[in-house]
Every structure is written in C-alpha cells, then in structure tokens.
C-alpha cells in the first residue's frame, strides 16, 4: 500500500516498582511471581503524568526524528483505556501541544490494549485514500491494577506514537489484517477505578485465539512463512504469553526476543505491542520484515506485515530509543507507588 510508517517515538515514565516489592506487601513469594509472569519490574507514571502527557512526549519524540511540519498532520488518534477525561479528547490536547491544530481531525480510541493499532489502521486508510497527508497514531496508557490484584504486578505506563504517511517511509506496510469477536475476557465498567478480568479465561479463548488467528491470517494471505520474517512482536500482558504465542506460530527466540519489552516495563496496555515494535525498529535495518500483532480484550487483534526501509538508519538515533528509557529509572517503595498513583486519598 501507499501509506506506511514515516516515524516513531516512545515515552516511558522513569519510575519503577519491582514485582518483588509488590509481592512483599501481599505476602506472595516474589520468585513465584517473577517466574510466573516473567516481569521483573514495571513503569509507574510520575505524580504529574497521565495518558495525555505520555502521549505528548511520545508524539514529540516521533516528530523529533523527521522533518515534518506538525501542521501537515491531518489526523491524530490516541488509543487508551486511561484517558484522563471520560468526555473531552486526549487527541486535541496532543494536537495543540505539538502544534498540529487546527486544520486536522482528532479522535480518542478505546479497545482495551489494541486501541493504538486501531489508530494506525485508521491513519493508513486516510493516507491511502488521499484524505490526509500525515496521520499520527498513538497508543498510551497509565494502566491501573487494583491493590492486591494480580494485574498490579503488570499494569504499567508508557506510550508510543507512529507517524503514518506516504513519503520518506521507514517501513512499508505490506498488509494489515484484523480478527475480532465478542469475547468478555477483561473489562472496566463506566465510573469504576479498576478493571475486572476473567482469570484463566483471558488465555486460550482470548489472547491466544486472537493473536494466533490474526497472525496466521495475515501470513496466509501474503503467502509468507515465519522463517521469512525477521522479527515478530505481539501484545505483551506478561512475558509468558507472547513467547508462547511466538513458539506456537513457529518463531524462534532471535525473532521474538528483541520485541519483548514487558519483562522490563510491565504491560503498557495500548502502548505494549507498539513499544515492542519501536524496540525492534531501534535495532533493525533496511529490508528486514516485521510481523506485529496487537491484542485488545473484548476482543480483537490487528496484524501488520512490515518491511523496513533503509531510511530507518537515518532517523533512529534522532530521538531516545527504548534502551535509553530503560537506563534512566528510579525505584519506588510500595508506599511511594501508592502516593504517586493517587491510591491514597487526601481529604
């Protein structure tokens, strides 16, 4: 297709809490948790950070990599399940903050953890149709797990922004394919602070069924075998799920490990697979093929078959890479974590 990826940028807050620290509070065996989820630590937003600020930072890092005048961006989509306002878009704030307003359209998306890739698909369509020159798709979240819930070990914060356009692409989008059903594996009712999940039901009928169906679907449609793909990136609710899915599809460690970011930052929800893709773009070269498959509870998966161009080498160093966000960090105690995430109510 004509439209592809022109730039990318991520943002991960610098605060971290270890699984060990959380396990200690709830009387769990830290080793069991670490080995069960393959999550060592997760990112935590600063006291003044939310999905809006994370989206803006990711968008700025994305724009920093290229010479694109933000006023040429015709659409901004922010996918998140933690928009600070229930009514009032995140995307307009991002548009204003990066100087893309006012000749543009904007919308917020919500589809659990795949709202970010939904924004990429929409942008691809708008660019392909000639309606816009550039589209900016962002996946960002400050995910909340209730204290004591297993989600507390993984629900984290981060964002990734992708600039979609038809010129100077760093990656061609060879195809995109979605697989969607009504599967109630995870949800949050309006007005509730924390999501609920269906325990082990989130596995086989939800995550694995959608990830594998979408990934197989796109590979079959393009007559491509796993061995022809250089890197594969999936949504990462924990470390085990994406690795198992990759193995089930026939991928090897060197294909899936570079895109596994959850072990170091936790599950950034709408940003999860996109930060994984960014970590891959940080290290890959022109001509390499990447398979990306997101997953959003409720449920659906978007697959993308990408071919990286030589342009990647020119832009990857112009904004902070995943490795830099991993280097700059500060650990929190569980008490500090509660304070930062607003879980302690002040009168």
């Amino acid at each position: 297709m004509k439209a592809g990826i022109v730039s990318y940028g991520i943002y991960i807050p610098m605060y971290r809490i270890t699984a060990r620290e959380i396990a200690k509070i709830w009387g769990k065996d830290p080793k069991e948790i670490e080995n069960g989820l393959l999550i060592k630590e997760k990112s935590v937003p600063g006291i003044d950070e939310d999905t809006v600020t994370i989206s803006v930072e990711a968008a700025r890092n994305c724009i920093k990599r290229v010479r694109v005048d933000p006023s040429e961006i015709g659409a901004i989509f922010v996918g998140s399940e933690s928009h600070p306002y229930a009514v009032k878009p995140t995307a307009t704030i991002v548009g204003e903050a990066i100087g893309a307003t006012p000749e543009m359209t904007a919308a917020d998306y919500e589809f659990a953890c795949k709202a970010g890739t939904a924004g990429i698909q929409t942008s691809l369509g708008l660019v392909n149709s000639g309606m816009i020159k550039y589209g900016l798709a962002i996946g960002a979240d400050t995910a909340q797990g209730a204290p004591g819930d297993p989600l507390e070990y993984s629900a984290s914060a981060g964002g990734a922004a992708f600039l979609i356009g038809s010129k100077d692409k760093i990656a061609e989008v060879l195809d995109t394919y979605s697989f969607t059903t009504d599967t109630p594996d995870f949800w949050r009712r309006e007005g509730k602070a924390y999501p609920r999940h269906a325990g082990r039901f989130t596995g086989a009928p939800a995550y694995f069924k959608h990830i594998i169906s979408a990934s197989r679907g796109i590979m079959e449609r393009n007559s491509i075998e796993p061995k022809e793909i250089d890197y594969v990136v999936f949504h990462q609710p924990n470390g085990k799920f994406p690795m198992r899915a990759a193995k089930l599809l026939g991928f090897e460690k060197e294909q899936y490990l570079p895109g596994i970011v959850v072990t170091q930052i936790g599950n950034t929800y709408s940003a999860s697979s996109l930060i994984g893709l960014s970590a891959v773009l940080d290290v890959c070269n022109g001509g390499e093929k990447v398979l990306l498959t997101s997953f959003g509870s409720g449920a659906g998966s978007d697959s993308f078959l990408l071919e990286v161009t030589d342009k990647i080498v020119e832009i990857k160093d112009k904004a902070p890479k995943f490795s830099e966000f991993i280097r700059r960090k500060k650990y929190l105690s569980y008490g500090e974590y509660l304070k930062l995430s607003g879980k302690i109510k002040l009168s």
Binding site: G46, D50, V52, T53, A97
Partner: peptide
C-alpha cells in the same frame, strides 16, 4: 522541556497541562 500536569480545578474540573 517536558509536558506535564501542572494542577487541576479539583477532581471534577479541568486539568491544567503545561511545561515543566
């Protein structure tokens, strides 16, 4: 420069974003 929440008009009001 970073982009952050500066303050807010209570829990139900507008969130004031800005530079830090």
């Amino acid at each position: 420069l970073v982009f952050r929440r500066v303050s807010e008009d209570g829990e139900e009001g507008i969130i004031y974003y800005g530079y830090k």
